[in-house]
Amino acid sequence: MARRTEARAHAIATAERLFRIQGYTATGLTQILTESGAPKGSFYFHFPRGKAQLAEETIDQYVTRRIAVLSEISANTAGDAPSFVEKVFATFAAEMVASNFEYGCLMQNLANELPALDAELTRRVARGFVDSTEVIANHFRGCGFTPARASSTAAALVAALEGARTVARLERTPAIFEALAEVSLHRCAASEG
């Protein structure tokens, strides 16, 4: 039983890594099987609908982790919008550096390929952005932002983070995260003032 669970977890971890580096369409099932070490029969036991089901479950786990990270940052910076913004940008920048600037955002990579994806994948990606943006908006509401201002600031922060990943991958430096954190801090100061 532990082996089955291990094979499933390896397949999901491998799919996430490959989707984040090269995208969904460019990642073939054969590559996932080879790199995860999963036998084909075991793979289809865990993912009877194949690559699409694997992608769905990979998105779900990725979003769960992303929300947990954002929630932890929020809890550690309760009531402090500037510290929250700084910590979010620093955390995302550190992840980029740790991956040697190879990893994009799983949801962003898949969203860029939406015409090639099925409706369920599209729905999950969209839901992932909505749910993680809401965690950020909740933090800003807890800092005294009006609901409308909290939502717009959260949406802007998410867009900035996703764009920063793209620029950081191209430039191979986290400098864009620092620049956007500074701009975002000015927005937070204006929101609080």
Rank of each mutant, 00 (worst) to 15 (best):
G79D: 10
V69F: 04
F101D: 01
A119K: 11
E102R: 13
I32T: 00
A55E: 04
D60H: 09
T27M: 05
S74K: 06
V88F: 03
S42G: 12
G50Y: 04
A68W: 01
P115G: 12
R49C: 04
A93C: 08
A81P: 05
G37E: 04
E86D: 13
R66N: 12
L70M: 12
A38K: 02
R65G: 15
L18F: 06
I73N: 02
N100E: 15
F89E: 04
T25N: 05
E120D: 12
T27K: 05
G104N: 11
M107A: 10
I59F: 03
A111M: 06
S42W: 05
F45C: 01
E57R: 14
R49G: 02
C105K: 04
V69Y: 01
T77I: 07
N100Q: 13
I67N: 08
H46S: 13
G104C: 00
Q108N: 13
A68R: 10
T91C: 05
T64K: 15
T34K: 14
E72D: 15
F45P: 00
A68T: 08
C105I: 05
L121F: 03
S42L: 12
V85E: 08
G41M: 09
T91L: 01
Q61S: 09
V97D: 01
N76C: 10
P82E: 12
H46R: 03
D60Q: 13
A26V: 00
A26E: 10
Y62H: 11
A93Y: 07
L29T: 04
G23D: 02
N109K: 15
E72S: 13
T30S: 14
A93R: 10
L33D: 02
E35T: 06
T27H: 07
F19R: 03
N112S: 11
A90E: 10
T25E: 14
T91S: 10
T58M: 09
T64G: 15
F84E: 03
V97M: 09
P82N: 11
V85L: 13
L33V: 06
F19Q: 04
R66W: 15
S99W: 02
I59D: 00
L110Y: 06
L33N: 01
I73Q: 03
P48M: 05
P39A: 15
G23K: 02
Y44C: 00
R17L: 14
P48G: 08
T58P: 08
A26I: 00
N100P: 00
Y44D: 00
L110G: 07
T25H: 10
G79W: 01
N112V: 05
Y62A: 11
Q22E: 13
H46F: 11
F45K: 11
N109T: 10
V97S: 06
D118P: 03
V69P: 00
T58S: 14
D80I: 09
G28R: 01
V85Q: 07
R49E: 15
